[in-house]
Structures are given as structure tokens and as C-alpha cells.
Design a protein around this nucleic acid. Structure first.
Lengths: 204, 204
DNA sequence: TGTCACTTGGCAGTCACTGCCAAGTGACAG
DNA sequence: CTGTCACTTGGCAGTGACTGCCAAGTGACA
């Protein structure tokens, strides 16, 4: 990596950190792009070259975590059974959070306080489900169909989302590993009801 | 409902329909609020009193469908077993789509084409999961905890989302009831892998 | 039918975001 | 070491989403 790229990477980081701090300090809406740019000592125009939208400044943090999780998934050998490979995903997210819980809580606060912001996660969530499903499909090696892959990806995302939501709702006091364990236990016990049509009893 | 409210309701509808048509005709981004307001023959300021954001104009359609589904859920007698009550939710969504498939496909096209727009669904999705979980919790009458309710709500939303996604991805050619059946069947057969930690075998 | 509360719409202003252009600065060859 | 080139930077002007404010219009109701 040349000096040029190094510098740009640093600028990229600096902008995100600066923005994050300002958001925490004075709220998302109350912080203008100009302020962030000024604090990070770059032009607003430059800032936009690094982050396309104001939302992206916040979402990028989540994105990094998800990218790491996807990498962990892809790093699993092809022979690894699906449940274990999927566990790598959940585990990676857990590690990201454990590494810096305070940051995630703060991040969550920002999302929570700013109605229109949570929205920015959707795109990420969506593309991520796609990627996950695709990888699941590839791994199943023709023995499974798209519906299976889509459902598997969605279910896994669910686990992550429920765990994170439960953890943050609790203010991060509970060990995240414990929450994960509980969630997976419920699922494995088939304790979660599945929508079922009413069976019309003809013996009446 | 007085004349006043009737009129407002009609205006509300008119604005949404007008916007929808324009979005379909020329795309979301290319359509300005002013255009919509002009076409619907109201002031832009008035338009904003009915729909807080441009996104809301599109999201409202999805919101209506979900509201109907939630109403169907709440309409179930408290004695109805959870799986059947949840089925009412899935069924309601199915009905909404069946009633006007073309509209949903068009709607989906708009969402699909406009990156930043899918985002608007997240908020909806989120608040809806909350509401669903809350109702599930109420129905379980103290016999279940929050985690159970959250997971149940998330799983049900998953079913809906996967069904709709599969249906739209296919261009609406497959009977939606068939997709629903397949999805529920996969779930009931426990065919979807659950993330599982590698069991370290100590006998080695 | 007159009063009142609510709805409407225009206007000015803020802020996110974009295209364009000129100046600065690493990269790289000679 | 140096000149050239490609890329990065930042200012500026412009568009469009969205808001506060205020004056005019219009159902509701006594």
C-alpha cells in the first residue's frame, strides 16, 4: 500500500470517528455535514467522496462488523457442516461486540434516537441476506434450492438481530454469549411456534 | 365521519395514488415533490402535512398491508393457539397481495430500483416486529418471556418476508399460497439449519 | 348565520447532496 | 533529482427535500 492509499485510509477512519463522536455528543440530526468536515479538517466535498451519504457515516460501523462476519463464514472449509459454518457468523458478530461493547451501545443509541436512521440499515440487511443466502446455496452444492437458502439466511440473520436487540435493550448488562445460548436453545427445542392453518375438523 | 374528515381522507388517498403513478411512470428519484403536489392539485406544504417524507409516500402502501395483518392477528380470540393466530397474519398478507398483485409488483420494482428507498422499510419492519412481539407476549399470558416473544415475532416476519421476496423475485408467476406452503413445510420439518458450535470431542 | 377551530398554501430558509473546475500532491519514469 | 501525469482535494453554484411562519379559506357547531 503506497503512501497515498495509507493517507486516504487514515482520512476515511478519521472522518468516521469524528462523525461518531459528534453524533454521540450532540445527536445525529443536530450535527451538520459541514461541522463534521470542519472537525475532521477536510472539505465537505471531500467528505462526500468517502461517504456517499450522512447515513453511511453511521451505517459503516455496522457494515464493518457484518463484513467481518461474512468473511468468517467464507473462511470455513467447504466440508464444514452448515450449522457449524453458520455458527462462525454468529460468533464473529459476538466477538465484534465483545471487543468494544461501549461503542455498539452508543451506536445503538444513535439509531434508536433517530427515527429515519434505522432505515439505513435496511439496505445493508437486505444485501447481506442475499450474500449469505448465496453462500449457503453454494455450500449446499446443488442439494438444496433457493428457498432453502433464503430461509436459512433469513433465520441466521434473525438470530443475530434478536441477540443484538435483546442485548442492547438490556443496556449491555447481560453477557451476550448467554443470550446467544438462550436463543439457539429455544430454536433447537422447536419452542418457537410456526404459523399453522386451522385444521377443519370434519368429524363434527 | 364529518365532511371534513372525509375530504381529508380522500386527499390523502389521492396524493398517494398520484405519487404512485408518477413513480411508476418516471421513477422515484426523477419525480419531485412539487410535481406530485401539482398533479394532485395541492400545495407542497399541504402534501407534507399528509406524508412527512417522500419515502412515506411509498412506504404507506406496505404499511397499510401490515396494519391489516396486525388487525387480523388482534382479531383472533385469545384462546386461539399461537400457531393458528400467527397464521392469520400470514394469511392476511397473502390476501392483500392476491387482491392486487400488479400493484405489489410495481411497488416492489420501485423499491428495487431505488437503493436508498428500501431503507424506508426498515423502520416499518422494526416497529412492526415490536408490535407483533408485544401481542405475542400478551397472548402467552405470562407463560413466556420476552425472548420467546421477540423470536416468535421475528420468525413470523421472516416467513412473510421470504414469501414475498420469493414471489416477487419470480415476477409473481407462482401462486403465493404455494410458496407459503413450501416455506411453512420446510420450517415444520426442521429442515433449516440452526447455528451450532463445534462440539469439541474429548475422546480424541 | 356568525364565530371558531382547523386546513390550506405560499414564502423564505436550512441542509443534504451533486457537477464542475482549478489547485495541490503522491507516483513513477528518465 | 526532476518533470510529468494521474489522482485527490476543496470551493462554488445549484437542486431538491423538508420546516417554521403567517395569512386566507372553509367545515363544524351553537
Amino acid at each position: 500500500m503506497g503512501l497515498r492509499e495509507t493517507k486516504m485510509e487514515r482520512t476515511r477512519q478519521l472522518i468516521a470517528e469524528t462523525a461518531f463522536d459528534l453524533f454521540v455528543a450532540q445527536g445525529y440530526d443536530a450535527t451538520t455535514i459541514e461541522q463534521i468536515a470542519a472537525a475532521a479538517e477536510v472539505g465537505t466535498r471531500t467528505l462526500y467522496r468517502y461517504y456517499a451519504t450522512k447515513e453511511a457515516l453511521v451505517v459503516s460501523f455496522v457494515e464493518n462488523g457484518l463484513n467481518a462476519a461474512m468473511a468468517a463464514f467464507e473462511a470455513q472449509p467447504d466440508e464444514t457442516p452448515l450449522p457449524e459454518a453458520l455458527y462462525a457468523v454468529v460468533d464473529s458478530v459476538e466477538q465484534t461486540i465483545t471487543a468494544n461493547p461501549a461503542r455498539l451501545l452508543a451506536l445503538y443509541q444513535i439509531f434508536h434516537r433517530t427515527a429515519g436512521l434505522r432505515a439505513g440499515l435496511a439496505d445493508l440487511d437486505w444485501s447481506w441476506r442475499q450474500r449469505l443466502a448465496q453462500e449457503v446455496l453454494r455450500r449446499s452444492d446443488g442439494t438444496r434450492d433457493v428457498l432453502f437458502a433464503t430461509l436459512t439466511a433469513a433465520s441466521t440473520m434473525n438470530v443475530i438481530e434478536v441477540v443484538v436487540q435483546t442485548w442492547t435493550a438490556d443496556g449491555g448488562r447481560t453477557e451476550i454469549a448467554d443470550i446467544t445460548r438462550s436463543v439457539l436453545k429455544l430454536l433447537r427445542a422447536n419452542a418457537i411456534p410456526i404459523p399453522t392453518a386451522i385444521r377443519h375438523d370434519h368429524s363434527t
